[in-house]
Write a protein that binds this DNA or RNA. Sequence first.
DNA 1: TATCTGTTATATTGTAAGTATAACAGTTAG
DNA 2: CTAACTGTTATACTTACAATATAACAGATA
Lengths: 132, 132
Amino acid sequence: MIIQLDMQSELPIYTQLVNQIIEGIASGQLKPGEPLPSVRSLASDIGINLHTVNKAYTLLKQDGFILVHRQKGVVINPEGMPGITENYRNKMQGELKPIAAEAICRGMSRERLLLEVERIYQEITQTDKEND
Amino acid sequence: MIIQLDMQSELPIYTQLVNQIIEGIASGQLKPGEPLPSVRSLASDIGINLHTVNKAYTLLKQDGFILVHRQKGVVINPEGMPGITENYRNKMQGELKPIAAEAICRGMSRERLLLEVERIYQEITQTDKEND
DNA sequence: TATCTGTTATATTGTAAGTATAACAGTTAG
DNA sequence: CTAACTGTTATACTTACAATATAACAGATA
């Protein structure tokens, strides 16, 4: 699992970390039960502060994506991922709305927008099954 | 065109303004050529500073959604909306990717995600044609 | 006993958001 | 011409967040 940060991005580092770990889970690179690096080692690896990593882990923990075992350290939640809650649906809709609105403004058809979403969905889920 | 701000939101006020104006254009409530309130009057109406409104207008102007006529003031771009540029596609994809990734993590199927997007698209475009 | 883990506390720096006040240049109505 | 409006710019201030830097604590491990 390679973490790639953009220090020039307007997105906070901890947000980029959260996104990339979630994408890692979605793509199958990170599986339930799999351990994550400690806050200190990950921070050291990518050259940032441990508190920035800790903030990302805390957010992922709050949503149920990861667990903290007093023995095993930090792991992808072995019980599986959080489901589609009411809170989550509201959050997703609030994020999708401005994106859809701008697409409509720019003359993007319903079909083309759906194609874009479908393409991204597939891009994430298409596992490079080179090692099984 | 009613502006509704959430002062408790994590989104900056000027971002909420930008989003709502774009949604207003997408829904047909704001048509090309139509004037927008002055920075001072809009700021006064919703109880914020004129610089916050000005920042929103500046961003909308940079992307070509609005124009500043030395006579008519600020108007929705009469030449029409900006198209689907390379920059825009990259921006949209970068916004959609983390949303899709989280949806996949939570077990949302491709079809259900597309349905959500389709629903939001229709929700924005369905004009309440009460006055024509 | 060391060393690692996550966690917490505190302090500091830098930047962004938002407000406040003021001024300038151009336009428009009286 | 004057007065009131427009967008625009400049400056300064407060607040909040992002990120870093140290440091310490409690629990687990070798």
